[in-house]
Nucleic acid binder design. Structure first.
Lengths: 166, 166
DNA sequence: TGGCCCTGTGCAATAATATGCATTAATCAT
DNA sequence: ATGATTAATGCATATTATTGCACAGGGCCA
């Protein structure tokens, strides 16, 4: 009887594992997958009938991680180059901004790792009157402002955009 | 009434969030963290008392993912290449430091080629109070300090560590 | 200044993931 | 062939993570 055991197909599952994991890679690359259960259904559509347990193990073997984003969790390869960056300040600031501080006409922005470059680009793209220029590292941006007053104004503005998205 | 509410400390938690998240980045960079509960305890040791719920939210904001490995799960930045850079200032400074100079609240460190990144990371990791942030190139680091005085103090300190290893 | 709104948080419930154990089929060494 | 060994997996459950809800404190605006 079918008390337990593997899939109901009688074919050698050793072969299937590889193909299934290959399919997982393709699926995950092609579309956002938020949970193992969702992945299970997608695989089911492709003819791979397995349980969530198996996927948990597959994902570990494939080194795929569930990466949390503001838009929900997504399975992806941890070291894959994240999504392409947009240049809209309203987009990248809420996404990457960590903190702002400054002295004189210098504004120092901290971002989450990898966020400095996109934000700096976005700021540059705006050609803000109070900004002379920006220099970005990995997670830090130096913004050279026209004056301490301008720095103060910019700081508030950026914090607002970061928080409210506008 | 006592129905619920936040921590029992009466201080403004808005301020703490940033520092806590910074601490999270440092902890996660420094050692393997397998679960949010484990992270909670590590933060507790550092004086940040929050619940695991809060960490769930922090981790999402920081884009840190729980990455499965054969050795167990680890929290890490998804797009960070497996970094094994050392973060001990006492290590990297004597190794790479070349010279220090500055004006106002800006400190410019010169290093031997390739030494800027590691030293900047080490400085960041220390979260020194006099430092607003660092930006590193190939062999030059710009350190933005809180004040000219702070710059002076930092300059002496770094030169001492570079020379004596402590 | 008073109200309104927004952020940060805890708590408890819910959702998602990981895993110990059992089972099956395939392989292997006798 | 036959028992031993191994790999893959399901099931039930344990472990972890996320979220809905409520509330406190601060900022902001009329």
């Amino acid at each position: 009887m079918l008390t337990s055991g593997r899939a109901d197909t009688g074919d050698p599952e050793r072969v299937n594992k590889k193909r299934r994991q290959q399919a997982i890679l393709e699926i995950v690359a092609a579309q956002p997958v938020a949970s193992q259960e969702e992945l299970r259904q997608l695989l089911d559509d492709r003819g791979f009938a397995v349980t969530q347990s198996t996927l948990s193990r597959d994902l570990r073997e494939l080194r795929l991680a569930r990466i949390p984003t503001p838009l929900g969790a997504r399975y992806a390869s941890p070291d894959a180059p994240g999504d392409d960056h947009r240049t809209a300040l309203e987009d990248v600031l809420p996404q990457f901004f960590a903190s702002a501080d400054g002295v004189g006409e210098l504004l120092v922005l901290k971002t989450i790792p990898g966020g400095a470059q996109p934000i700096a680009e976005a700021i540059d793209a705006q050609a803000l009157p109070e900004v002379l220029g920006t220099i970005a590292g990995e997670n830090t941006i130096l913004v050279i402002c026209r004056s301490a007053t301008a720095r103060d104004r910019l700081e508030r503005k950026l914090e607002r955009v970061a928080r409210t998205g506008a």
